[in-house]
């Protein structure tokens, strides 16, 4: 039973991380219909920024709480800036280009960013500092649910609530929803679509950075390539839930996280990634609109 609960929590933790990344995919797709292939790299850069800042601060002897806060903020700020800049460089000029052009551009951006980090930093795996201490009150169940898992779950819930609030009630959130329904119409009623798109990239990237920070402290090591796999899996989750749908992204992520966790726990860990990729292929073939997505008909 303990094993089951352990797997359950590990699945939820994974799912939460996927959700933080998947939201970026789904929001961008909802607004401009682009699979932002470089999103996984944003997440990787978030993790790297957090790693660099946290290590520097710990070398200079800052207290743990300050390290966590500063590294977290730095990760979010820089990832968002990257997201914003990437959109301006690689996607904005292609807004009226054929559908595949921005996707190719996104793939190029992804490869570029991976190698940029590889060259400027290193190709080795780097040990990520432990940012989350073992809470004393978690002691009795620590063998089942770690403190890090708890922090991840709580953070994710808080972030989700905040995001829902932003999208439901703030002006920019309303503009986002309007833009995703009909961009031309949104322009006509005076919404600055460029600003909405930028905001979407900034928010999505910020979420990915939080995901990057959390997963890095959970796994304990990072390298320049972590974005690719995490990106693909989060994308799988977003598609599973129905790309473009925010609750869908969360649902899909949790399902993916749980199934992965149970599959590796009870079956075998060799084919963990094969499983995710196969799931991706199967959903796209049989139910491309996902669980909560809307099927779209092409207008003739």
């Amino acid at each position: 039973m303990d094993y089951f609960i352990e797997l359950l929590f590990s699945g939820l933790t994974r799912g939460s991380i996927y959700a933080l990344i998947a939201l970026g995919y789904t929001m961008v797709y909802g607004i401009i219909g682009l699979i932002n292939f470089a999103h996984g790299e944003i997440y990787m850069i978030g993790a790297f920024t957090a790693f660099i800042v946290a290590t520097v601060l710990s070398i200079y002897g800052f207290p743990l709480i300050a390290i966590v806060i500063i590294a977290g903020i730095a990760a979010v700020v820089w990832s968002s800036s990257y997201g914003y800049t990437i959109e301006k460089i690689a996607y904005k000029p292609l807004r009226h280009a054929p559908r595949l052009s921005p996707l190719i551009s996104a793939i190029g951006m992804s490869i570029f960013l991976q190698n940029y980090v590889l060259l400027a930093q290193t190709s080795d795996f780097l040990p990520f500092p432990r940012l989350i201490p073992d809470f004393p009150f978690m002691e009795p169940i620590a063998h089942i649910v770690g403190s890090t898992d708890l922090v991840i779950l709580v953070t994710t819930v808080i972030v989700m609530v905040a995001l829902t609030f932003i999208i439901k009630f703030t002006l920019i959130g309303k503009a986002m929803r309007a833009t995703s329904q009909d961009r031309t119409m949104a322009t006509l009623v005076g919404i600055n679509v460029n600003r909405v798109i930028s905001a979407t990239f900034i928010i999505g990237s910020g979420l990915a950075a939080i995901g990057g920070l959390l997963i890095a402290s959970h796994i304990g090591q990072i390298n320049f390539y972590i974005g690719f796999l995490a990106g693909i899996k989060a994308f799988t989750a977003a598609v599973l839930g129905g790309i473009g749908s925010i609750p869908g992204a969360v649902l899909g992520s949790l399902i993916l996280g749980l199934t992965e966790s149970f599959a590796t726990g009870y079956v075998s860990s060799d084919y963990e990634d094969v499983f995710a990729f196969s799931l991706l292929v199967l959903i796209l073939i049989f139910k491309p609109s996902g669980l909560l997505g809307k099927a779209t008909n092409q207008k003739v």
Binding site: I35, L100, L103, I232, V274, F277
Partner: peptide
């Protein structure tokens, strides 16, 4: 056969997934 009815960008991702599956199978 199954994937070519997909829209362009989905097709791209599915083929990517397929490529990775082949590699992972060869590895494992």
């Amino acid at each position: 056969f199954p994937v070519l009815r997909l829209r362009g960008d989905y097709l791209a991702i599915v083929t990517l997934g397929f490529g990775e599956i082949i590699r992972l199978i060869l590895e494992n």
